[in-house]
């Protein structure tokens, strides 16, 4: 049915600078994933990097999805809307600017607020893993562009 193993996932740049504060979890995770699944190295400053990954918007929100008949929240929807740009030192775009929106539902009950808080953290981590994978997809797709 035409399926074959995925080819190598090289990125269109050898060195990448992630323009996020050191203390952000996304910075550590994106760096680990890029270096684990491609030959690209993550460097410490924009000057020495061929590509700069810049976050233009990163909003996490929690919207009420459904209410019980007693007017209590029964389900929340966790949303993360992430927009980014990857450009070179001169500001030329290397990867088309894009937006990735991630959604997860989580049931809710007032008396389980602590366990639901841990569950929300689990879902936020899962969303971040998904986000990092999709970012990688966007970077590798940009490789075809260069050809």
């Amino acid at each position: 049915c035409g399926f074959q193993l995925r080819g190598s996932s090289d990125l269109p740049f050898e060195t990448l600078y992630i323009a996020l504060p050191e203390s952000s979890e996304l910075h550590a995770q994106l760096a680990r994933t890029v270096q684990a699944s491609s030959r690209t190295r993550v460097v410490g400053s924009a000057a020495e990097a061929q590509a700069v990954f810049a976050v233009t918007a990163d909003n996490q929100s929690k919207n009420i999805l459904s209410l019980s008949s007693a007017g209590r929240v029964r389900e929340y929807e966790l949303v993360r809307s992430f927009a980014f740009r990857v450009h070179d030192a001169k500001g030329q775009e290397l990867v088309p600017a894009g937006q990735i929106v991630l959604r997860r539902d989580i049931s809710f009950a007032d008396d389980q607020i602590l366990s639901k808080e841990n569950e929300e953290a689990l879902l936020r981590r899962d969303m971040q893993n998904d986000l990092v994978q999709q970012l990688l997809r966007r970077f590798t797709a940009a490789k075809q562009l260069q050809k």
Binding site: R104, D105, L114, S115, K116, E117, N118, E119, L122, L123
Partner: peptide
């Protein structure tokens, strides 16, 4: 602080069905 986690794609690959 423990409760049963919703059964979804985030949970089926985690090590515990409880949070």
């Amino acid at each position: 602080d423990t409760g049963l986690v919703d059964f979804n794609f985030a949970q089926i690959f985690s090590e515990n069905i409880y949070s």
